[in-house]
Design a protein around this nucleic acid. Structure first.
Lengths: 338, 338
DNA sequence: ATGAATTACGCAACCGATTGCGTAAATTAA
DNA sequence: TTAATTTACGCAATCGGTTGCGTAATTCAT
């Protein structure tokens, strides 16, 4: 059971003051190199470890970044987190990760807990449900850097990182149109979230541009839970107007649609063409391979990390509310091409 | 910009001592209900938030659990983390998550950082590389609960959570044998990790039990990175003895093997039967659907969380080094059955 | 009513590092 | 050699709760 040794112990051993020890350890310019060396040496020998609790208290910062995500266990989200962690780890920050499980209530709770834990910054991807953003004012009031990624909101002066979902939705739909689709269904997530509503608008704009009328019944809003695939396929089957293209806002859902449609005897892409979203690993496993929009999660994580760091280090003016857009890319595979 | 208010402020407002405020806030029995009520009320009104830094310092605990995983972005690991987070969150603990990226060096660094951050407990799934476990003695010395899951090691008095990999490897192989396979290849991860070596032993035992000789060339050890699929398939093709069954220690790798083998003209399961491991979502997307071993990640996370919590709350004797085994299950699908 | 037993709360010493301010010591200038 | 700078370090307050111990206040028993 190793003894806890403090700067006071070191000070005593060296016959100097704790203040000097502290400054030496932090490489403060007002301390001579000779003294620093002595301190560092003894610190090594005794196995001194700085007590973060004390340092945090006196500095009022924790070297910790909080993250709230809807759920950890999705390929996209864990990839983003992986990127964030990489950056945080590289510069010596810890990451406290919590999930809202798509519940606004839990999100509020997590925001509060993380605040009380004294995170130096907060990264958020919103829950489906969240409509009210008051739980973040605690942060903005105290000038704690706050950044939204993927599922963002329009809070003033809050940087966001997303792809251009509007353009991506447009590109996806446009691609289907170019492949000859005349009656395209769009399966969307919760339209309260701009990620989805933007894609939906892009979809509409593409239709409009090609003089294809938008039919209300061609919009299918859901939580993209694959349990709903069945219902959706029924709807396709019973559709008055023959559906020949589907733009799904999520690869996993798209993949299961393909499976189900194939069971129903549809040929893909001959009868129906399908495009997904995210470029999830499953998109290359399904047969036919799924055309999709690449949504670079890791890069998003890296950028989110870097961006929040730069805010923390104060190198960026806190008022400079930036909106980072990451490039998406259309990846054409078999599900939309003969 | 809200003012920071402390227990001293509350004390002043109420004309009582900070000690009483503190005890009231913590529902200490020595304080009358009347006083507690008054304190709570004023605390609410003024928007008092306890300063965790100070509390941590004086209590020498952080209400934080550290986690080190090889990588965040795998379906299995993020599912486990999701379970851990659920438990931690429910009982008011924060989770600091870091990834070793399969590097022993980084794992050591993370262990040190988390220790310095004052985590109350540590959950670890080891990196491929790790052979030396000295970085954990800091924890055991200080009696900080330490638990390994999935990729575990045999440190004395350290609880572990795994499935019975030996039995699972046996079941997988036995299943292939029952389906008529005579020459079964095993694709394993790094055999330094017991998860993999146990499965390998199970594989051997199953062969032995059916009087099938084990051929050295039928063991393929790799990092299970799908870039190696190609090499592996070549090896199958050029094998002296016709391979008719493959047991892969990882679904993702197995799925890509199927893709590649199909390209080479092999029929699955007619020519070669394949069984994977993990029951990853992709296993139900590939055609033919992949037979696999279910490895309940979420449950593992839940158990890991609960177990470490019980150690924390001291309800379990610290010496009671337990080894929790989670039940696995053989899931038979098309890739092994005609 | 009075001593004994409870109950309710305050005092003050921590927890361990940080930091503004002041000053002795060392260096330079005159 | 002495005064003016500069350098190097120490003092002591501070961050905000927590908690052992002591005592005043209240309740109970007789």
């Amino acid at each position: 059971m190793a003894k806890k040794i403090t700067i006071y112990d070191l000070a005593q051993k060296l016959n100097i003051s704790p203040a000097t020890v502290s400054r030496s350890l932090n490489d403060h310019p007002a301390i001579s190199q000779k003294t620093k060396d002595k301190v560092l040496l003894v610190a090594k020998e005794t196995g001194y470890r700085t007590n973060k609790f004390a340092a945090n208290l006196s500095k009022q910062k924790s070297n910790t970044i909080g993250v709230i995500v809807p759920k950890l266990n999705s390929n996209f989200m864990s990839t983003v987190l992986s990127g964030i962690e990489k950056i945080a780890n590289d510069i010596g920050y810890n990451l406290i990760i919590s999930q809202s499980l798509e519940s606004e209530k839990k999100e509020k709770l997590n925001a509060k807990t993380l605040f009380d834990s004294g995170v130096d910054a907060l990264l958020v991807s919103l829950a489906y449900e969240t409509e009210n953003y008051d739980h973040f004012t605690t942060y903005t009031d105290r000038k704690i850097p706050l950044l939204f990624f993927d599922r963002v909101c329009d809070l003033p002066n809050c940087p966001t990182i997303t792809i251009d979902n509007h353009a991506a939705g447009f590109d996806a739909t446009q691609h289907l149109i170019e492949q000859g689709c005349k009656n395209i269904v769009h399966i969307s997530g919760n339209l309260k979230r701009s990620v989805y509503s933007d894609r939906f608008e892009g979809y509409q704009r593409a239709l409009y541009k090609s003089d294809i009328p938008f039919r209300k019944e061609n919009l299918y809003e859901s939580d993209l839970n694959i349990e709903n695939v069945r219902t959706f396929v029924e709807r396709i089957k019973n559709s008055k107007h023959k559906v020949d293209g589907i733009f799904v806002s999520n690869d996993t859902f798209a993949v299961h649609c393909i499976k189900e449609l194939k069971k129903e005897g549809y040929r893909i892409p001959e009868d129906i063409k399908i495009i997904g979203f995210n470029n999830d690993p499953v998109s290359e496993v399904i047969s036919p391979n799924l055309t999709t929009i690449e949504y670079p999660g890791y890069k998003m994580g890296i950028l989110a990390g870097e961006s929040i760091i730069s805010h923390l280090s104060g190198s960026i003016n806190i008022q400079s509310a930036d909106q980072i857009l990451i490039k998406h890319k259309l990846i054409i595979r078999e599900s939309t091409q003969l």
